[in-house]
Design a protein around this nucleic acid. Structure first.
Lengths: 202, 202
DNA sequence: CCCTTTTTTAACCATTTGGTTAAAAAAAGA
DNA sequence: TCTTTTTTTAACCAAATGGTTAAAAAAGGG
């Protein structure tokens, strides 16, 4: 009996992810989510009290998907250049699979920052950040890379990984008219890692 | 008499920019725009037939602000490294002044790509793009920079210029907790240009 | 002062939308 | 088969929302 219930809840969540990601909180309609889930509105409200609660659950999961890799990156023990390659590959594989997430999360975080800060936990990120900071500084001391603020480096990597996904429809038209942007994106992880490493290495 | 009319229309447009940028098309309320403009709803509809028309005008202007610099960059005649510096500076000054534009445009373009492609004209961009492409290829031949796809280079620069603005609330909390992110952003144009040039120069 | 344009007031309307309710029906477990 | 849980049906509600209308008032120009 539990199975049926949980299956339905999953159908609802999947539908909600799809609709919210495509249209945002204010653009999404509860009826549309119910239709997408193959159920009716009454059952939707039977499982999820209201739109806001449903949205928050979807939003939280999406945010974890978007920001999770950063935390893993910061906490990782491997050598810096390897770390950078790993992060790029991780991002491009996750985001190509869920291309609506960056736009969705960043837009909703911008429209309603309070909710974003309320829902997101930064457990361990501060310590992990400190660790990476020291690693970068050590690389600078050792003459492996040129001097750069560690946070600047991280922000650059994130920019190069996430922005192409966000700007895909625009850039696809402007830069890659009539070409297979999907394929270009898939080959981009390595190139971005190279671009970053070329920039910092001595 | 014309002055009064045009002044009011400007007030409306300014208000619409503010509200649409903050809440998106579906999140914005016509009453809210009227209030922000210091007028009433009847007058709002007297000047702008409906929400969609008003939105399109705002959206188009915002898109031009966001994409204008790319076109100028591509068409510019100066030497490549100078061009890159100019573009970075241009972007950071425009976007720091209008920080809501990137998020707004890219999100609405993602929610409704058809409208985006309908409203945007790419006059001359294709030719200008070809020009920059040849310039980059010449630099590669001359051994000034390492081999790189010109479009990849452009996309990287755009990523490094635009993404920090979009992700500012998130990154401000994650990377720069309790620091003056505004100031950091202002100093970023030069650093981003350096980052790019370091990466491609031989 | 008259005429035109701009602006306000305020009521009004149709539709959409999130959400509720209650009863019936279907499904599943014991 | 009896009971509990899940799902459907379908009507319903209040509030919000985009948009309209008509008349009055205010403002500005000639």
């Amino acid at each position: 009996m539990k199975e049926k219930s949980e299956e339905t809840q999953k159908q609802i969540l999947d539908a909600a992810k799809k609709i919210f990601a495509a249209k945002g909180l204010t653009g999404a309609r509860m009826q549309e989510i119910a239709d997408e889930a193959g159920i009716n509105k009454a059952l939707l409200h039977y499982y999820y009290r209201n739109k806001e609660k449903l949205f928050e659950q979807v939003f939280e999961e999406a945010t974890i998907k978007l920001l999770g890799p950063v935390a893993s990156f910061l906490a990782d023990d491997s050598e810096l250049f390897t770390k950078i390659r790993n992060l790029c590959h991780h991002y491009y594989s996750v985001l190509i699979e869920y291309p609506f997430i960056p736009n969705f999360v960043l837009n909703e975080a911008s429209v309603n920052p309070e909710r974003f800060f309320r829902l997101i936990r930064f457990e361990g990120v501060i310590e992990a950040k400190e660790k990476t900071k020291q690693q970068v500084e050590q690389c600078i001391k050792d003459g492996i890379i040129r001097p750069i603020d560690p946070r600047e480096l991280i922000w650059n990597i994130l920019s190069l990984c996430i922005f192409p996904i966000i700007s895909r429809p625009v850039a696809g038209k402007l830069l890659y008219a009539n070409e297979n942007v999907q394929e270009i994106l898939e080959q981009r992880a390595d190139k971005v890692a190279d671009f970053v490493i070329q920039s910092i290495k001595k």
